[in-house]
């Protein structure tokens, strides 16, 4: 039994079958990649997992509890964090504040009215935030306004914001989209480092085969809303059906 069990998910947008009978099991402490050509339903699947979309039928169990019908913030409180295709950070706030907000969310729950004591008085939060910034090598940038940073740093910051909550499952939506190869490699190293230090399950949705094959332990290939095959990277590379559906032209 995996940490996340997706069973028989169907989702239609008008006449388009975006997801058709998707079954997926993500095992604990693995890096599980979901790949597929454009329009295969990867993003739809991810949106179902985080509560943004409600499927027409099927079930999604996270550690045995259904996530369907819950709001994004409730699902996050259950232990699922999400990294977006374009980094979603608090652009107007400083790096430190960006990281402190998830610390507060982790400690105080979905809302708490701490209107009188200053932010800086919460030393436990500050220490946590500093520790995670140290982890991702951003401690020297703590006073910077988040919007003024490079894209790679924004990505790093977003990861730090997710990780500081110690999620059980980290969902990554094309974490290297639009990055240069050097940045991509940095991100891969960062993710690997994260994985080594923590008991964390990662689900990666990715276009870039380089990323997928250098990290994933299991790969699910989606095509036209249905899982084509699920296997280890080595087997996927040679799989004739996958080559035909997706890797036909790509050089691996």
């Amino acid at each position: 039994m995996g940490i996340l069990e997706v069973k028989g998910i169907n989702k239609r947008f008008g006449g388009l079958q975006a997801l058709g009978d998707v079954n997926l099991s993500i095992a604990e402490n693995t890096v599980h990649a979901i790949i597929g050509p454009n329009g295969a339903g990867k993003s739809t699947l991810l949106n179902v997992l985080v509560g943004k979309l409600i499927p027409d039928s099927g079930s999604v169990l996270f550690e045995g509890t259904s996530v369907l019908g819950r709001k994004p913030h409730e699902i996050n409180q259950m232990g699922i964090s999400r990294v977006f295709q374009t980094p979603e950070i608090f652009a107007d706030l400083s790096v430190m504040e960006n990281v402190m907000i998830p610390c507060f969310a982790k400690r105080d729950g979905a809302y708490a009215f701490n209107a009188i004591g200053g932010v800086t008085k919460h030393t436990d939060i500050r220490e946590q935030a500093e520790a995670i910034l140290d982890d991702v090598n951003m401690l020297d940038k703590r006073e910077m306004i988040a919007s003024s940073m490079s894209r790679g740093d924004k990505r790093r910051l977003e990861m730090a914001m997710c990780l500081v909550q110690e999620p059980r499952l980290l969902l990554l939506d094309e974490p290297t989209a639009g990055m240069a190869r050097a940045d991509t490699n940095n991100t891969i190293d960062l993710l690997k480092e994260i994985k080594e230090k923590r008991d964390i399950t990662m689900a990666i949705i990715e276009h870039d085969m380089h990323v997928v094959f250098s990290m994933a332990e299991r790969i699910t290939v989606l095509a036209q809303g249905t899982p084509l095959v699920e296997d280890t990277p080595d087997n996927i590379k040679g799989h004739p059906k996958v080559r035909e559906a997706y890797l036909g032209e790509a050089q691996v």
Binding site: E88, D92, I101, F104, D108, A110, V119
Partner: peptide, 28 residues
């Protein structure tokens, strides 16, 4: 001033900055 500098003030500024990230950070 106290509200501006409090965790609640921080959350309110977070709302202004990015509500999507706010909800995906587990905050209502």
């Amino acid at each position: 001033i106290r509200i501006f500098r409090s965790p609640m003030g921080l959350m309110l500024r977070a709302i202004k900055s990015n509500q999507t990230r706010m909800s995906y950070t587990g905050l209502n």
